[in-house]
Design a protein around this nucleic acid. Structure first.
Lengths: 213, 213
DNA sequence: GAGATATTAGCACGACCGTTCGTGCAGTTT
DNA sequence: AAACTGCACGAACGGTCGTGCTAATATCTC
């Protein structure tokens, strides 16, 4: 009946699983999920290949676990911090700027994990793609939700197309990450910051809304 | 003196090289440049592994040749057609909408070749990344150039930041491709079409410019 | 024709891949 | 103390990878 007796064995197992996944998200954010090899993870972490394998059961399960781990890291880095920010426009803005900070800080060494990995799998049917599509929808919904709160609060114009606006915001974020990583420069982040505010102001009920100062 | 004597031997070689690259860009646009394997290309095309290998000399050279081939295809599909369109705002718009058509038509089976492959290599130093960075700059410059013509022609506001505007346009294009491929739907293209016009109108000297009808 | 040249094939190599198996060891239960 | 459970190990499996060789086969030059 859900005994939470700290079994030292399974505890140790979870520990190595965590270590493997930590390394895995790092590798995948730079080289992709295909570049994840069980042998490489094993030698990198001083484990045996079969030990790593046993912890996941298959390569695909390792990839899926890596996606889940990345999703957790992303949620902690970007979504969770805005809980303090008031709902509506301020929260929407905080989400976007938090995302830029997340990319800028290289929470994942290769920039946004999902940018790398989604591009890799978006045209390949399978469980990995489905999981990534869910993550993308989840993030998009988070933005739309904040925008919806802003609209019902009257800080966004009532005729605003929330889907279009969220799409535009996400487009700017992803482009900033992509170009910043590719050309190894920070100007894209500055462009993105300006454009973000511009897009929000264009849809704000009051263009001089202090939330968009 | 650049004799173009049609040597049947080298001609035949170029032919198979073309066939290999045609297949290669298709594979790479779906699964990435890392998924290009010489043996796979050989069996797919009914050639010998060493035959394919000999035509390129190394895996990296095959990857670079694949990028060059994709660049050519992209230029033919997107850039070349706008030669008929008058410079300035009409051409900028035509470039963007041509790009959307290129993604929509799946000129590359996995959507935009460069989206897939750039995400794969943007955090990995090397010749492939450099080549891709050049392609990205080239495309960005193409847009900026069209916008610059528009500004000097007076159809864009003189204080328009061309870099920011080009960045926003490209962001919308890439996001449309990315989401359309990932979720297998076409609404992103419609969103992108609307947003494109909106971004251009916001910077147009005359918001009712017939070029943005 | 002969001979030079360029493209392709055949074959072998060492390395790494994901996966399976049998085994040993540490912790839990009885 | 004995029986059981779960993690990690080392060795080995069949495959595929990129990359070298050497031959065979077209095509061009003379």
């Amino acid at each position: 009946m859900a005994r939470t007796t700290t079994d030292g064995r399974v505890l140790r197992g979870e520990e190595t699983r965590r270590a493997v996944l930590h390394r895995a998200v790092g590798i995948a954010s730079v080289e992709g999920l295909d570049a994840l090899s069980i042998g490489r993870l094993a030698t990198d972490l001083g484990l045996s290949k079969s030990g790593v394998f046993a912890g996941f059961g298959s390569k695909e399960e390792l990839q899926l676990a890596t996606v889940r781990a990345a999703r957790r890291i992303f949620a902690d880095a970007v979504v969770a911090p805005v809980a303090d920010t008031p709902p509506g426009l301020p929260r929407a803005r905080a989400l976007c700027e938090g995302w830029l900070g997340y990319s800028r800080a290289r929470v994942f060494p290769g920039g946004c994990f999902f940018h790398e990995v989604t591009a890799e799998f978006d045209a390949r049917p399978g469980a990995v793609r489905d999981a990534l599509a869910d993550c993308a929808r989840e993030w998009s919904d988070t933005i739309v939700e904040a925008l919806a709160e802003a609209r019902t609060a009257g800080t966004l114009r009532p005729d605003t197309d929330l889907g279009d606006l969220a799409f535009a915001l996400i487009a700017v974020l992803e482009a900033a990450n992509s170009q910043a990583v590719l050309h190894d420069e920070t100007t894209p982040y500055e462009r993105a910051g300006r454009l973000l505010l511009r897009l929000l102001r264009a849809e704000a009920a009051d263009p001089a809304d202090p939330a968009l100062a």
